[in-house]
Computed example of a mutant assay.
Amino acid sequence: MTENVRIGRARSTAPDLPELMGRVALGDQQAFIGVFEAVSGPVLGLVRTVLRDPAQSEEVAQEVLVEVWRTAARYQPARGSVMTWVLTLAHRRAVDRVRSEQASSDREKRVALLDHTPAYDEVVEQVESRLEREQVRRCLRGLTELQRQSVTLAYYRGLSYREVAELLATPLGTVKARMRDGLIRLRDCLGVGV
């Protein structure tokens, strides 16, 4: 498939895009003008559909065209047309811009959250948590065996009263009463207000 550069309305005898790209790869500025005229419109159109911001779209389109000039030697005709290659560069660059803008926005949000997050001392937090666990263990040791088993099965294993009663082979009413008494004793031991 050949890609011809059009001048005016009639087809000229101007070289096709792959030939122009070959000359651009050798540093031919006149050939680049032909490539530029052929691809700049589609590049800007594609970039605008991705970015939607006209100013950023023009900036990215310009970056793409500079990249075409700098990397023309990388174009391989066997892998596709010049237009496909250039539009692929444009799409990648536009998507990179979107990702960059999103990452920047996310960073700003994280920084804003950190500014409003109260500072805390991680070591103090760990020590307090450990002390609370030790106090709960000490208070659990102060319960009767049936109270401790009932509370442990219900609150640490998530079993219902009925499941606790079946597991301990104890009447449901007894389990409920022992659990209520155990929780009251835990509350008093831990110093938790009602």
Score class of each variant (00 low, 15 high):
Tyr156Ser: 15
Gln126Pro: 00
Asp16Ile: 10
Ile184Lys: 12
Leu183Lys: 08
Cys139Lys: 12
Arg99Lys: 07
Ala112Asn: 11
Asp106Ala: 04
Leu153Thr: 04
Pro118Met: 11
Arg107Trp: 13
Leu65Cys: 07
Ser81Tyr: 07
Leu190Tyr: 06
Gly27Trp: 05
Gln30Pro: 07
Tyr155Trp: 10
Arg133Ile: 06
Arg185Val: 09
Ser81Pro: 10
Asn4His: 13
Ala165Leu: 05
Val82Ile: 07
Arg162Gln: 15
Arg9Asn: 09
Glu134Thr: 08
Arg9Val: 09
Ala73Val: 04
His91Asn: 13
Gly193Asp: 06
Leu146Pro: 07
Ala72Asp: 06
Ala165Trp: 01
Val175Phe: 06
Cys189Met: 08
Leu167Met: 14
Asp16Met: 10
Arg70Cys: 03
Thr71Cys: 03
Thr152Met: 12
Arg97His: 02
Thr117Asp: 05
Gly158His: 03
Leu159Ala: 09
Val50Arg: 14
Cys139Glu: 07
Gln76Ile: 11
Thr88Lys: 09
Val66Ala: 13
Arg107Thr: 11
Leu114Ser: 14
Tyr155Met: 11
Gln126His: 02
Glu63His: 10
Leu190Thr: 11
Tyr75Ala: 02
Val192Met: 05
Val35His: 08
Gln147Pro: 05
Ala73Arg: 04
Arg185Asp: 05
Asp16Arg: 07
Val124Trp: 04
Val95His: 02
Lys176Asp: 11
Thr84Gly: 08
Pro42Met: 02
Thr84Val: 10
Glu145Ile: 15
Gly182Glu: 02
Arg74Trp: 00
Gln126Ser: 09
Val60Asn: 02
Thr2Gln: 14
Asp121His: 01
Arg141Ala: 14
Gln102Gly: 03
Asp121Gln: 00
Val95Tyr: 01
Pro18Trp: 01
Glu37Phe: 06
Leu46Glu: 10
Glu3Lys: 03
Pro15Ser: 08
Val194Met: 08
Glu128Gln: 14
Glu58Tyr: 03
Leu172Ile: 15
Leu183Ile: 12
Leu46Pro: 07
Gln126Cys: 06
Arg74Lys: 01
Ala38Ile: 04
Leu114Tyr: 04
Arg162Met: 13
Thr71Met: 03
Ala31Ser: 04
Asp115Phe: 12
Ala73Met: 04
Asp96Leu: 00
Gly158Glu: 00
Ala78Ser: 03
Val47Ala: 00
Thr84Asp: 03
Leu168Asn: 12
Leu114Lys: 09
Gln135Cys: 09
Lys109Leu: 15
Ala90Met: 02
Thr174Val: 05
Gly191Leu: 10
Pro42Thr: 03
Pro77Cys: 00
Pro77Asn: 00
Pro54Lys: 10
Leu153Gln: 12
Val82Arg: 10
Asp188His: 07
Phe32Pro: 12
Ala154Asp: 01
Leu146His: 09
Arg6Val: 14
Val124Ala: 10
Glu58Ala: 12
Val43Met: 02
Asp106Lys: 09
Ser40Asp: 05
Asp181Thr: 02
Glu67Gly: 03
Ala38Tyr: 00
Thr13Gln: 06
Glu19Arg: 13
